[in-house]
Simulated scan of single mutants.
Amino acid sequence: MAQIDWDSLGFDAYRTRTVVLAHYRDGAWSDIQTTETFSLTIDPFTQGLHYAISCFEGLKVFRQKDGSIIMFRPEKNAARMARSARFLGLPEPSEEMFIKMCELCVKNNMEFLPPYGHQASLYLRPLLFAPHPQMQLVPYPEVTLAVMCAPAGSYYGAHLRSAAAVIPGDYDRAAPKGTGSYKLSANYAGTFVPYKIAHEQGYAELLYLNSATRQFVDEFGSSNFFGIKGGNTYVTPLSDSVLPSITNMTLQECAADFGLKVEKRPVPLEELAEFDEAGGCGTAVVITPMSHIDMKPVLAEPTVSRSFRYEEDGAVGPWCTKLYKRITGIQFGEIEDIHGWCHKI
């Protein structure tokens, strides 16, 4: 087994052993290949470089309490990648092919799968991109699907600790009727600079409003938004510019199992003041409870126009705790998987 400090893992690129590849050209997919060469040779005119014609997924693999190895809801990631590919005009991998390549990536990198008991997982990153060299602004039916992996711990370096977020008044995430609901590589590029500014000010997250009117909550830069209202309702935004998060979908089902009312609807900015708890949710972060959310007219300047407080810094509310323990308990095999979410390898 690789000499890794499983308790100190963060969330970043990691040189593992094998990458799994498949290519679509001339109307058909190639055989699935594996390579231990951690590099790709591409043409300098590749569409994926010039026009960001690429999409990706993120899913996790867990070693469970009884020794089983599972992927969590991979069929949902397969469906979401296919949807993103269709939006880009790219050939889409089938669910069977997607899952087969993910399984092969796990089996060929088994020494990087964290043991049970360390609150860590093997993160899979399937990447679909257009390698064809061209400058014309039209899709070309040729793609490469690469599945790579990295051992992963907490996205922020601590498990289930509340953090601060900021609403940047001078940045938007996605345009109406644009790309926001697809997991495209290009969607993340515009968040790098505002994240750098926010992190330097002590904020862990950026919370974006809808760009058309800036009157409704959309989502965080890395994950979906949810709030707990009145101690009995799970609320998450309904917006055509929000990524359909598989973790959020799962949490909604867990919330319903607990007897919470689930509301997926537009969330007015003013409603942030009415939530008992608020957080972000996604594959990488699982749940990130928010201690408070500030509003800043200009992100780089010191003025805070308003602040919404939910917890003391670092503290976590009861429903964020329950939901986090439920989803991670299922993933690690500590709680029965009554919904059939765990795909055994």
Rank of each mutant, 00 (worst) to 15 (best):
G178H: 05
Q252R: 10
L269S: 05
T213F: 07
A163H: 14
D43A: 05
I287P: 00
E111G: 12
M110W: 06
L127I: 05
G10T: 07
V304G: 02
R73C: 14
I69H: 13
L251Q: 15
V106Y: 06
G333R: 04
V138Q: 07
A79I: 06
I42T: 15
L59F: 14
L299H: 05
A278W: 07
H159A: 11
V267P: 00
P141N: 10
Y123D: 10
K177Q: 14
D218R: 15
A174P: 03
E270N: 15
G333Y: 11
H343M: 10
K65M: 14
V61F: 06
Y195K: 04
Y310D: 09
G10F: 07
I99E: 07
K264Q: 14
S121Q: 02
M295D: 02
P131V: 12
N224C: 09
P114H: 04
M110Y: 11
T283Q: 12
T35L: 07
F38P: 13
E103G: 11
P176W: 00
Q64S: 06
P237I: 04
S54C: 15
Y156W: 10
T328M: 07
E334T: 04
F45R: 11
E57R: 04
S30G: 12
F225S: 01
T35N: 02
E75S: 12
W319D: 00
Q201S: 11
V217A: 06
G180I: 13
S185W: 08
K344E: 09
F226H: 07
T283M: 07
A174S: 14
T233K: 08
D276Q: 15
E253M: 08
S162C: 03
V138D: 10
P133V: 08
T213N: 10
H199W: 08
Q64E: 11
R309K: 12
K196N: 13
S39V: 14
V106M: 12
K296Y: 06
S8F: 15
R63P: 03
A255L: 03
D294I: 05
F220T: 00
